[in-house]
Amino acid sequence: MAIEVRIPTILRSYTGGAKVVEGSGDTLGDLLVDLDSRHAGLRARLVTDAGALHRFVNVYVNDEDVRFLGALDAKLNDGDSVTILPAVAGGAFGFAAAAAIAQHSAAAAAAAIAGPRASVTAR
């Protein structure tokens, strides 16, 4: 089962410079394990020690942010396209930013529980 994965510039050191690689897996988590077997170290840049998707990256399955599809549990099908982008964020104050991140994560998690589509259709 082939899934095309688009790799951002900052992670291409793990793919020998390749912009697009292929992998397989029934879920995003499985796919990242599969990719890591050929591109060692890549998974650790995307998944925290606690086993959650890293805050510093955005991962999309086709046109959807995986945060609204169950994150690492997001289901994949043959022919899907996965895109990884560095999240672009920052701001003036470290502590306030940390609070904003926590709020955002909580809101995203709540939205995901309330209904995977709710946040997307609200746009």
């Binding site: 955005n58 945060r67 999240a87 003036a92 904003a100």
Partner: peptide, 24 residues
């Protein structure tokens, strides 16, 4: 120009869907 999805005085964050569109 991108939306600041955080709409904050101390934090900014690209909206992930807008970013995907712009990066593509």
């Amino acid at each position: 120009p991108m939306d600041n999805a955080a709409r904050s005085m101390t934090f900014y964050e690209f909206d992930s869907m807008e970013q995907l569109r712009v990066w593509r």
